[in-house]
Simulated assay, not measured.
Amino acid sequence: MATNRRLMQCAPEAVFRALSDGWLYPSWVVGAARMREVDAAWPAPRATLHHSVGTWPFLLNGTTTMLEWHPNRKAVMQARGWPIGEARVTVEAEKTHSGCLVSIHETPVRGPGAALPAFLTGPMLRWRNSETLRRLSYLAESDSLGPRVSTAVAAPLAESS
């Protein structure tokens, strides 16, 4: 299993808003090239994203199915991209004083990646998921996805006479 962590300057809710929009998947997942379809129930458990991995003209169709969805805390997905294989991916967010700490854990579970020892797959997955978390942070910290963590207090409106 490979694990990466990143401090993000946003609330866990912003991270999970990005995860809940299936059409954003290729924006944050390294290797995903395009979306083909998003189940209407996404991100509910058993809902599936239909995507392609690779680079044109060498694209492989894959899917990612949500296994567990605990809003603002934890998402567990099964990513499939044959002939590469399948992996279990867990994303967790923990609130901090300045935003949140986001962790991604990836474990190959079927196919060639699962047959290789962790000392070979681990460094590659950590390198890939470092970039994945960087991309996810851009989405989550973006003002377009919702309010950022702020300690500012709104001033009361002055009454006019």
Rank of each mutant, 00 (worst) to 15 (best):
P71Y: 08
V109W: 07
L139R: 02
K95P: 11
R148W: 06
G85K: 05
S20A: 15
H51E: 08
K74G: 08
N129W: 01
S144G: 04
W69S: 10
R134T: 06
Y138P: 00
V89Y: 05
V29F: 09
R46T: 15
V109C: 13
M124G: 11
L133E: 03
A118V: 05
S160C: 03
E37Y: 08
V15G: 06
V53L: 15
S98I: 00
E141K: 12
G81Y: 02
R80W: 02
R80K: 11
T132N: 15
T151Y: 08
L133T: 02
G122C: 04
S137T: 02
W28D: 00
A44C: 09
S27Q: 08
S98E: 10
Q78C: 15
T96K: 12
T3F: 01
H105Y: 04
N4V: 11
P12H: 05
H70P: 00
P108M: 05
T151M: 11
R36T: 04
S144D: 11
P156L: 09
A114R: 13
D39R: 14
I104R: 00
A75L: 01
T3H: 11
L145P: 07
A152D: 10
S52W: 06
L59A: 09
W82L: 12
G85F: 02
A18Q: 00
S144W: 06
T65C: 09
L49N: 12
G99F: 04
P12S: 08
P83S: 08
S52M: 10
R128M: 07
Q78D: 13
N61W: 04
S144Y: 07
W127C: 04
L19K: 11
L145I: 09
V149D: 06
V91P: 00
H70K: 13
Q78F: 10
L59N: 07
N4Y: 03
L145K: 06
S160Q: 14
G31T: 00
T96P: 08
P123K: 08
P156V: 00
W42N: 04
A33H: 06
V149E: 11
T55W: 12
G85W: 07
P26Y: 05
P26W: 02
C100Q: 06
A155V: 10
A18W: 01
G146S: 09
P112V: 09
S27D: 07
H51Y: 15
A140F: 08
T55V: 14
L7Y: 12
P12W: 04
R128N: 12
T64D: 08
E94K: 15
L125V: 05
S130Q: 12
N4S: 10
D143V: 06
S137P: 00
H50K: 14
A11S: 15
N4C: 13
T65W: 02
